[in-house]
């Protein structure tokens, strides 16, 4: 299915922010993933037309980056850190508890397309190790039990929007630093909840 008008409109705004069209490729791939939960062939065709590079070039870039998914992702992407500060703070226990609860191994999605599990490299939350991200919203100071509580809560609540501050309050512990005032923005899909797209250079 090709992109709807609104998405195309956003794409054009993004392209205009850059001196050269091709620079928009990264953000456009996020738009694609926001639509389907992965980079579909239809989106590749669409993007290739929008910025004037070949489909193979789009695919080659998409496959380079781990946040552009080649296969459908569940509604909630669970990314547990396994890098050094987390590793020495028993992240492997958190990893095991999440894997056990979801029944998933690395980079797998469940049959209901609900959870995708992945273990990832440092997410910049080392002071609050071990840490996890849910749709790129960070939770710090996790325990194996809290990690399971978090998964259960997602299952029961199915929140439309995932907000780091809310998850941290409910399931987190030690933080890397004082987060101060809460952000009530978050992610609505397994892509970073970040809207570049309504500001552009014209704005005064």
């Amino acid at each position: 299915m090709s992109w709807e008008t609104e998405r195309l409109e956003k794409a054009k705004q993004i392209i205009e922010m850059y001196p050269q069209k091709r620079s928009a490729l990264g953000p456009l791939l996020y738009l694609a993933q926001d639509k389907d939960g992965y980079i579909s062939n239809e989106s590749i065709v669409e993007i290739s037309g929008l910025i004037g590079i070949t489909e193979v070039q789009v695919q080659s870039v998409a496959s380079f980056y781990s946040m552009y998914k080649q296969e459908p992702t569940g509604k909630f992407l669970l990314s547990v850190c396994k890098s050094i500060s987390c590793e020495i703070s028993n992240s492997s226990d958190v990893i095991n508890s999440v894997k056990n609860f979801t029944g998933l191994s690395n980079n797998e999605t469940d049959d209901e397309n609900f959870f995708t599990y992945e273990s990832v490299e440092c997410i910049g939350a080392c002071g609050g190790a071990p840490a996890i991200q849910v749709n790129y919203e960070t939770v710090e100071g996790l325990t194996p039990d809290k990690a399971v509580d978090l998964c259960k809560w997602l299952k029961e609540e199915e929140p439309e929007i995932v907000v780091a501050d809310e998850l941290q309050d409910k399931f987190g512990g030690v933080k890397s630093f004082d987060w101060a005032i809460a952000d009530n923005n978050g992610a609505t899909s397994p892509v970073p909840g970040f809207q570049t797209y309504d500001t552009s250079k014209e704005k005064k």
Partner: peptide, 15 residues
């Protein structure tokens, strides 16, 4: 990309 919240803060500051 994983710094979604920091990016939001920066973006709204720019706005």
């Amino acid at each position: 990309g994983e710094y979604a919240k920091p990016a939001r803060r920066v973006q709204s500051a720019i706005e």
